[in-house]
């Protein structure tokens, strides 16, 4: 069976983002989704630090450190873009104005609980940023992650064991091996990579799965 790499996964997520959507892409791998959004369609990227209509990374000579994304990387603003303060930025999330956000995760439960901010390790310095606001604010929360940890444990779980970011907030999980819908009804398999079947996927994850 052929795992999807990060790039292919980003492209897969991008396919589900329609024209007209207001979208927040989380730090890390989710940021790559922006590279695969069709340039000929109006899709509005929001950055939590006060930017709507975010464009791609600038050329070296055009870098402006007062035009950065949530990951503090330099970006650009599209014609028609806007700046705003943090109160407005988080009102966009909490108030349900952001259609889709894409986040990474440590764990997602079959009911859509999300754990992505803290490992719970006693010596870890916790940091949460905007993760909790995005998780409960965006109308749809997409998670993008590897299905298994490096040691082979499923990150799609019956119940999260890491500290929660939000309850019942994730709607869809894109992984290197399969795409799942999660929610009150449990996890449903939307698609799998070639060479994988439902039984094998149940064995890998250890959770109840049905086909969507």
């Amino acid at each position: 069976m052929q795992r999807m790499d990060r790039t292919a996964l980003a492209a897969r997520v991008a396919r589900d983002i329609p024209e007209g959507a207001y979208v927040n892409l989380g730090i890390g791998a989710p940021t790559m989704v922006g590279n695969f959004l069709p340039r000929d369609k109006d899709i509005f990227l929001q950055s939590e630090n006060g930017l709507l209509g975010m464009g791609p990374a600038p050329a070296e000579a055009e870098i402006d450190w007062e035009l950065i994304n949530a990951g503090k990387q330099p970006v650009t603003i599209l014609a028609g873009g806007a700046y705003f303060h943090h109160g407005d930025s988080f009102a966009m999330m909490r108030g349900g104005h952001i259609d889709i956000c894409v986040l990474g995760a440590f764990q997602v439960s079959v009911h859509g609980d999300l754990a992505n901010w803290h490992t719970g390790a006693p010596d870890a310095i916790p940091a949460v940023g905007g993760a909790m606001d995005l998780a409960i604010g965006a109308r749809q929360v997409f998670v993008m992650m590897d299905l298994l940890t490096k040691t082979g444990e499923s990150k799609l779980v019956a119940n999260c064991t890491y500290p929660l970011t939000g309850l019942a907030c994730v709607s869809r999980v894109y992984t290197d091996l399969a795409v799942f819908d999660v929610g009150p009804q449990g996890a449903r398999v939307v698609e799998m990579v070639d060479g994988l079947d439902l039984d094998k996927l149940r064995e890998l994850t250890g959770v109840d799965l049905e086909l969507a």
Partner: peptide
């Protein structure tokens, strides 16, 4: 949480006694 930080700062500036926020519940 970042949005609660913003909202609590806004509440202070706006003279509100407290806010109910969905962020962080649970």
């Amino acid at each position: 949480p970042q949005g609660n930080l913003a909202a609590r700062i806004e509440a202070a500036g706006a003279g509100l006694g407290a806010i109910f926020t969905p962020t962080g519940f649970g």
